[in-house]
Design a protein around this nucleic acid. Structure first.
Lengths: 236, 236
DNA sequence: CGCCTGGTTGACCAGAGTCAAACCTCGTGG
DNA sequence: CCACGAGGTTTGACTCTGGTCAACCAGGCG
């Protein structure tokens, strides 16, 4: 049996954000004659500094946006899910690089086309507001949380319906588990969380030692106590 | 002679962002019958968790948005300037608190009114894209920069026309100075930069010792070598 | 079978946080 | 007019979290 480290689009993580998925169905770029593009895992969609002419809507898969400092330090600024829109540029240059984490389907659409369509404008605004909120939360994580809190927050972010303000708590106290498939390497996680690869690894090992998670392969994590993990995110 | 620590709206910092100011003139909320509001320094415009019904456009002064963790840790997620729009909420609750730093003039407008106006939609989109870019840069600062780089970046952010990608460099090598008026306390700066008040103070003292800045009152800083400071931001 | 990549672990170090004390500046009231 | 107090700021001594550097490990592939 052959495992692939970075599964093609449509992997287990896709349904993690059903709301975003719905969003992408109603008033999707596709309905407006957007060009569909398919990317492999770890393909660059555009580089920081590239001329920005169109907008992209992620239809399937996962994409990350990152920025680099001249000495090579990297910060992943967003991890996108199906339904998210990216590639907006204030000036006419992209201010960050977009790279796929998994295989991905992307719809491209012209900026001018959006300006002309109130429907697309509305969809865009809604999406931007949601992303803004995520960026705010991420600023709190980067500016104020400890390493453990960052990793816990990251893992909780991958569990649908849990960890948010309206978290229902464990439905079954005894059986509060969840299976995760990581589409990011330790380096990518570290660059997203503002940590080093070693620190991420140490924290993960520590969670394992404490029985909060279980790992057999580096990219598959079983959370045994979701609620317990959630209490380590710093938001409780 | 009476000094006021937090000058009323229309202080020296207002013209720092002429582009944003222009933006606020063309297609301003005011033209669409928005209600004008005046706030004093350190007034709260809305709290995290308040019901979100309208949008706000900052016309004059400075406003910060911040989020709190339950144990009191605070992260300032945005510092807004005239022309910026805030108060957007994904759900129907504000996800952060908005507090004025100086006296401020704010235009309020109903969400529904925006949905109906393509002009406002366009303006909103443009503003959101600009803010997004600032948030991305801030993520790099919080995730990857050292204390000195953070403070240097912060100070450069207050110098108009300098430090960006299209920085013209010093127009006059010998006389590359700039006078700043800080509208934020050390605590607010620390919470914006993801540092402690002591670290900010130490870094500032160090810059002073090295002759890069000069300070007579805590909220007035003279940068003696802008280009030199810029080279400490980590982006060169 | 051995290399290569990504991940883990350990020892050590440094940058930033914590705690505490001293210091200004400004406003208030005797 | 000066003493006092409150807030915000600065400085020092010490601690600790997370970074650095290096060795080691495991799985996948040629």
């Amino acid at each position: 049996m052959a495992y692939i480290t970075y599964p093609a689009a449509g992997d287990a993580k896709t349904p993690a954000n059903p709301a975003a998925n719905q969003l992408s169905l109603r008033g999707s770029f596709a309905e407006f004659g957007a060009k569909a593009q398919v990317f492999g895992a770890h393909d660059v969609i555009f580089y920081e500094g590239d001329p920005a002419k169109r907008l992209y809507e992620l239809a399937q898969g996962t994409v990350m946006l990152f920025k680099l400092l001249p000495d090579g330090r990297r910060q992943v600024v967003e991890v996108l899910r199906p339904g998210d829109i990216f590639g907006l540029a204030n000036q006419n240059e992209h201010e960050c690089t977009a790279e796929t984490l998994t295989g991905a389907h992307v719809h491209e659409i012209d900026l001018k086309q959006i300006e002309g369509s109130p429907d697309l404008q509305r969809k865009l605004t809604k999406c931007l507001m949601a992303q803004m909120q995520v960026l705010h939360e991420h600023a709190v994580l980067l500016g104020r949380k400890s390493a453990v809190e960052r990793v816990a927050s990251f893992l909780m972010y991958l569990v649908p319906e849990r960890g948010g303000v309206g978290c229902p708590g464990p439905s079954d106290e005894e059986n509060d588990g969840y299976d995760l498939h990581l589409t990011m390497t330790r380096q990518e996680i570290a660059d997203y969380l503002g940590l080093t690869i070693e620190t991420v690894s140490r924290v993960v090992s520590d969670l394992k030692r404490r029985g909060i998670i279980r790992i057999d392969r580096a990219d598959r994590i079983h959370l045994t106590k979701v609620c317990r993990l959630c209490q380590m995110t710093g938001i409780h």
